[in-house]
Design a binder for these strands. Structure first.
Length: 475
RNA sequence: GGAAGGAUGGCUGAGCGGUUUAAAGCGGCGGUCUUGAAAACCGUUGUGGCGUUAUACGUCACCGGGGGUUCGAAUCCCUCUCCUUCCGCCA
């Protein structure tokens, strides 16, 4: 969610940014938002004035009734004067009578005074009805106002290259050696079944297309990789490991920005209003919602390993072979909450961490700087890290590192108290994979394959596999 | 799954339909005193929205969430969530 003050003060600038993101629909929403904002503020001013009056009049009425110092006659005369003012819709004047009661009372009895008070209560009811009606209008306008804002993406950082499509993303130099093969490198969807470590047919049999089973050393290799990554992150890089719910409430999906725009890519649970986790980011981003953190506790580094569940409707028919794009996959996710001054430094650190893992796995990789047209909904700036897969002959996105600045923090309402004691500010929230597991498995299989279809296990993973060095065909 | 009791500011805890602003204590912050500290004393203390002459002032909302009753709700009613205790079941 954007800061409404920004939209109010620089609407044209905001629209320009949205055009860089190719989001014409959001551009149209800006005028709608401004209009709703105006209506909302006008209504608020009106209803709050009435509420202030009601508060004063109700309080004064109660005090008059219980007042033991004034004679009944004076109280009765006051009530009558107030009633007359209310009938003329002159609330200020009514208030004045409470503050300065008439000098001389009449000869009313206690019973007559109570009777008159009941009339006074009834007159105040009219004010209450007006307030109720206005409150309803306010509620309607605010709902529409909020709903519109939910569809507006984050603003790109000034440093993000402006371009329309992902084809313009800027590739940084390749790190590591791209291996030269003296035989035809096979794709993992050939290697896996031949070695008996990936079973596509039986995965599809039980769950449908884009599901698969890892078997034997395939499953163990995945588990070794996950353990390697978690161990590095927790012991070397000071990340706190989290085990999180794999199903989350609807609010969580809104908080991290998946909803409302990407409802279609989620797996809802029938009748429960809960959703299968599309990424650990959703769970971790919402974990601290509504809280105010101490600046001294920032940055907070979290790592969560979870399965991720995605419908992948957007890419129906694409990447259907192998385990590159599937409905359920493992991911080790880094998540940071940082102060506003440090978030881009923290972003750079996250990239270096992810790259250090890939370097240790000894797989060639490169950084990809994402242009405006490919930024996505929540990020101000994004880098992908890609591994080379010589079998399918493509660069595989194994990590995507985003700074969302305060966009998610506004939705989830997470702030920090600055060390100098000033007003609470929204935290900056960053997320980045380290790493996407199936694609890393693909890269390992294809880079480490031998001429006879075996797979050498990367050095750093061997301790996790009882020292085993190679996965060989059976028999 | 059943029964009962709860949920109040950073924390403890009073208030249970109107008697100035949610009492009091603890903690935090600032100050006085002190060579320094402690103690004591004084002052101060949350979040969000709206308005304005905008580090300030005014105003509205917030006592677990939502809805209702009422002229007026922390207080009464409904509902949901969570917590505690007891019973049942259980990896």
């Amino acid at each position: 969610m954007l800061d409404i003050t920004l939209i109010r003060e620089k609407p044209d600038w905001v629209k320009d940014q949205l055009r860089k993101l190719n989001d014409e629909a959001a551009v149209a929403r800006i005028d709608k938002i401004l209009e709703l904002d105006q209506r909302r503020r006008a209504l608020l001013t009106e209803v709050e004035q009435l509420k202030a009056l009601r508060n004063n009049l109700s309080k004064a009425t109660g005090q008059l009734r219980g007042n033991k110092k004034l004679e009944v006659g004076v109280k009765h005369a006051t009530a009558q004067a107030v009633i007359a003012a209310l009938e003329a819709d002159d609330y200020q004047k009514a208030q004045g009578f409470f503050e300065n009661p008439p000098q001389h009372g009449n000869s009313a009895t206690e019973a007559e005074f109570q009777e008159t008070m009941n009339t006074l209560f009834a007159r105040l009811g009219g004010l209450g009805d007006k307030i109720t009606a206005l409150d309803e209008q306010v509620r309607g306008v605010e709902e529409a106002f909020y709903e519109e804002q939910l569809w507006v993406p984050n603003m790109p950082h000034a440093s993000v290259p402006v371009a329309d499509s992902d084809e313009a993303n800027i590739a940084h130099p390749v790190q590591g050696e791209i291996r030269k093969f003296d035989f035809k490198a096979q794709p993992h969807w050939e290697l896996g079944p031949a070695l008996g470590i990936i079973d596509f047919e039986r995965g599809v049999k039980i769950a449908g297309t884009r599901f698969y089973i890892l078997a034997g050393m395939g499953a163990r290799l995945q588990r070794a990789l996950i353990n390697f990554l978690l161990d590095e992150l927790t012991t070397l890089w000071n990340f706190e490991e989290l085990y999180v719910p794999l199903m989350v409430k609807r609010e969580a999906m809104y908080g991290s920005g998946q909803f409302p725009k990407f409802v279609d890519t989620s797996y809802p649970l029938a009748d429960l209003d809960m959703y299968m986790l599309p990424t650990a980011e959703v769970a971790i981003a919402n974990m601290l919602s509504g809280e105010i953190l101490d600046e001294a506790s920032l940055p907070r580094n979290y790592v969560g390993h979870t399965p991720c569940f995605r419908q992948e409707k957007m890419s129906a028919g694409r990447d259907v072979r192998g385990i590159k794009r599937v409905h359920q996959f493992e991911k080790v996710e880094m998540f940071k909450l940082a102060s506003q001054d440090t978030s881009y430094d923290e972003m750079e650190k996250m990239m270096q961490i992810a790259e250090s893992m890939i370097a240790k796995l000894e797989i060639p990789y490169r950084r990809l700087e994402i242009v405006t047209g490919d930024l996505g909904f929540t990020a101000t700036k994004k880098f992908d890290i890609e591994m080379w897969a010589p079998g399918c002959e493509e660069w595989l996105e194994v990590s995507s590192i985003s700074n969302t600045e305060d966009f998610q923090a506004r939705r989830a309402n997470i702030k920090y108290r600055p060390s100098d004691g000033g007003k609470a500010k929204f935290v900056h929230m960053l997320n980045g994979s380290c790493l996407g597991i199936p694609r890393t498995v693909i890269a390992i299989m294809e880079n480490y394959q031998t001429a006879d279809g075996a797979i050498v296990i990367p050095n750093v993973l061997r301790p996790y596999l009882g020292g085993q060095e190679i996965i060989e065909p059976k028999g």
